[in-house]
């Protein structure tokens, strides 16, 4: 028996919004420590890794490890049937071929349940090596989303160059070029608005705009985003899922031919 409950469905809605552009289907691996999802996008350029810890749920029970293959568009349809403040309970029997989403209104005057067929997905699991990153940048997630959106107008790629002084995002194309420099903030009173840079060595890498913009669909989850970079390895873009865990996106860099 698997059962996981969240007091408000809005968190699950936001998590789905954050992954549905990149993935059509995904396997949710459930164990007593929580729910894990790891999947590449169709083009194998990026990888999504989602961790939702069992102790972050309002109720969590997982008697046996189960993997639930779900179509994310179908899951979105079902979650649309829930009000943001409805309690959501995800339930599945061991060896079940369906998963049930139960929504309960706060006043307990409306209870609905939706069963969704599970899929057998043959997904590859990749081993992600531990990396000591040369640069780790923390900045407001809204600012990062704004920069990715703005620079996408200029070209298909965004250069991210990090030094002690700050981070420079740049793009160029037919209409011209764009540069946005973000400096480390000295005001630490408002942590959510701060920009911090931990740098061992300067790094400059180039990434596809399209993927960065897909990652920013996670912005509503967290006021801050963390970007981790080293030469010639994938960029890691991490958002916290409050009280539950995190979502990490790995993006392969563009490299010299």
């Amino acid at each position: 028996m698997f059962e996981a409950r969240l007091d408000s469905s809005v968190t699950l809605k936001k998590v789905l919004e954050a992954i549905k552009d990149l993935l059509n289907d995904a396997s949710f691996d459930c164990s007593d420590t929580g729910i894990q999802l790891q999947a590449m996008d169709n083009s194998h350029v990026s990888l999504v890794s989602l961790t939702l810890k069992s102790d972050g749920f309002d109720k969590y029970r997982c008697d046996r490890n189960i993997t639930m293959g779900m179509n994310l568009a179908s899951m979105v349809k079902i979650l649309k049937c829930a009000n943001n403040d409805d309690t959501v309970t995800i339930k599945a029997q061991d060896d079940a071929d369906t998963v049930t989403f139960m929504f309960e209104s706060k006043k307990q005057d409306k209870i609905s349940d939706y069963a969704m067929k599970l899929m057998n997905l043959d997904q590859e699991h990749l081993g992600i090596p531990d990396t000591d990153f040369s640069c780790v940048i923390r900045m407001p997630s809204i600012e990062f989303a704004r920069i990715c959106r703005d620079l996408a107008q200029f070209g298909e790629s965004i250069g991210i160059a990090c030094t002690k002084e700050g981070v420079k995002f740049s793009a160029s194309g037919d209409i011209g070029s764009a540069n946005v420099k973000i400096a480390q903030t000295s005001n630490f009173e408002k942590e959510e608005e701060s920009v911090t840079i931990e740098m061992q060595e300067p790094v400059a890498l180039t990434f596809a705009c399209q993927y960065l913009n897909s990652f920013t669909k996670a912005t509503p989850l967290s006021p801050q985003v963390q970007l981790s970079m080293s030469d010639n390895v994938p960029l890691v873009v991490e958002y916290t899922v409050p009280e539950l865990g995190h979502i990490r996106y790995y993006l392969a860099p563009k490299i010299e031919e």
């Binding site: 350029v45 699991h125 990749l126 081993g127 992600i128 790995y250 563009k254 031919e257």
Partner: peptide
């Protein structure tokens, strides 16, 4: 000119 690499160039199948 830069070309897009694949995530599988960096992370290997378990």
């Amino acid at each position: 000119n830069k070309s897009q690499s694949s995530i599988k160039d960096f992370f290997h199948t378990k």
